[in-house]
Design a protein around this nucleic acid. Sequence first.
DNA 1: GACAATTGCGCAAACGTTTGCACAATTGTT
DNA 2: AACAATTGTGCAAACGTTTGCGCAATTGTC
Lengths: 367, 367
Amino acid sequence: MWMRIFWPIGWPNYANLLFLFPAFVSIHRASISDLAAQLNLSVSTVSRALSDHSRISDATKKRVWELARHLNYQPNQLAAALRKGRSNTLGVVVPHIDGQFFALVVKGIETIANQAGFNVMICQSNEDAAQEQKNIETLLNAQVDGILLSLSLSTHDFRHLEEVRRREIPLVLFDRVVENTDVSAVVLNDYQGGYEAVSHLIAEGCRRIAHLGGPQHLNICKNRYQGYADALQRHDLPLDPLLLHFSDLSIQDGRQGMELLFDQTPHLDAVFSCNDLALVGAMQVVKRRGLRIPQDVALAGFSNELFDSLTEPMLTSVDQRCEEMGRTAVQMLLEMIQEGPTKVAPRQVVLQPKLLIRESSQRSMLQ
Amino acid sequence: MWMRIFWPIGWPNYANLLFLFPAFVSIHRASISDLAAQLNLSVSTVSRALSDHSRISDATKKRVWELARHLNYQPNQLAAALRKGRSNTLGVVVPHIDGQFFALVVKGIETIANQAGFNVMICQSNEDAAQEQKNIETLLNAQVDGILLSLSLSTHDFRHLEEVRRREIPLVLFDRVVENTDVSAVVLNDYQGGYEAVSHLIAEGCRRIAHLGGPQHLNICKNRYQGYADALQRHDLPLDPLLLHFSDLSIQDGRQGMELLFDQTPHLDAVFSCNDLALVGAMQVVKRRGLRIPQDVALAGFSNELFDSLTEPMLTSVDQRCEEMGRTAVQMLLEMIQEGPTKVAPRQVVLQPKLLIRESSQRSMLQ
DNA sequence: GACAATTGCGCAAACGTTTGCACAATTGTT
DNA sequence: AACAATTGTGCAAACGTTTGCGCAATTGTC
């Protein structure tokens, strides 16, 4: 047995006492028709008054707003969404949120989205293509107004993206993207990052620089590798296959890779890793072999993870402008949502990386 | 100008080609009434068939399912939510998601929630009470079916929780909770964790054990401190105020705290920190002073952060059963949602911590 | 063969908004 | 004074489901 109680304006507001009787009284959330009934207005007028429509008199608006405040009226977003065909919700798919990078990107996304009055639904693909596809479906079913996506390691085909396009849901990729496509995206200049990091190692006197690379179908890994290769070439150093090792870049992968590289090329004098996790693995191996960092082997990585300043020595790394990436990605998405899906020409924003030089690569200062 | 095109069963399915003409054709998502029209059934019958209602004949069900598959019918969750008064969405509020702990809890939550067919909306309070309140409002407005909450550092009053109760939205707190209340919660036995860590330090021969503590209005910090204090007492060691330092436990706080403690009590021989971030700060100061870890000063912390195994020495820490916490919290919430908000008696689940002993505290092996 | 129970389906209302259209009252224009 | 434009409001349909109730046809029971 439920009671719905009208609470005329002017009566004292006991609402905050009602939690004392949770078992007896259920507060029915005031709806527009409640307001309308109490004010002797029609639902449509109230609705328009609430949205500050120009054809409603100031007097009426005032009455409506007052009662709305008094009854603590909160619009039913679901109803509005159903009617308008827009849910005011954005969907985000990231490979994972442990680890500094995506956590910060998500923070940037949330900040801006909330400011713009949007809710955010976050999904993790756990680096799994199938899960990523499921995530996308979930978001589409939840009727999100737009989707932000960073691809999982194992994503090779992009049919789920076609589905998004078919439904005309705005989509912005970030960081790990599909290249050469007309989907909007915001990425880091990974090539530049790799190039700068390796040039720095060369400037510090390194000549045999190994590379721990990631899956080459991922734009970020490919471009970082390309930056590595070009930096070598630019400084007339050979690109030696024996100095290369590709993996999924876990810490364990880093350890294994480093062992292998040492076996192949005992006299290497630096490592540039595609991420910091693998770099830490490599660091452990270097230490275990009794070599000094950076004197014998200099190290540089990518991502500027939190732990980079906590290891010994502290690790040189390329910063990825995480929050900025999140913010610009969501801004692009909001623009697409407002302008209509087909109005905005797809564009790619490229952010500039920033090399953070720390102990693990600063040889020159020691000699 | 929109076209809605019926696509009779049996016709070839060109849907995946349509993305070629995004400008001309907009695929109207098939709705129940589309199915009904094509099958010469009523909407209600189709609806019931889709949900496998017992009063619908198998033959009809089969026809419906087939066409649904063929048209790639996806139910409109918003409409269903509106009608049923349930959105199939859960809300989560965490202080932040950078850092291992909450990221893993969230992962646990997502896994279970998705399995149960629920969407998840994640909000960050950024350790700010006002933001936390806003988050709760946002979630309530989005009509979530239940809320999972871990309090921010600066949350002192709990009126926003009363609002949740008033609306009869199931609520489960986790980790950082309001104690002595009838709200369901799942927490770690922080007391036990503190007690074990400090007992371990004592067993390793430490006698003047300092404590880096957090805000004492937070249950977790208070209990960890209590565990520390009781372990000392149990082993007949004095509780010396000069060995205590309380802060917000940032890495910077850890550094400052450690400096202060050293100034007050130069001959301390161990530190138990309420979290690992502050412990790392402390570690840096210990090293800077030229003292050996663990021989001169042993270290133990709380949270088992990723970087604990990457520092040198590796840090002893109490593991918090992150994913398990997320999973049980969301399970409790789902139960409350299914059974009805007032049916389930509030209960508190306490998880047992696990002390992970690493180099930073293993004195006995060295001597 | 009369009646009850079961099976299979449709009607229509409801959830809480938004919005095109209509209409009356007021104001402005000549 | 006649007409147009503007202002303020209401009616009703629509968004896509779910669900209580009703009704006919079928099946089962004695």
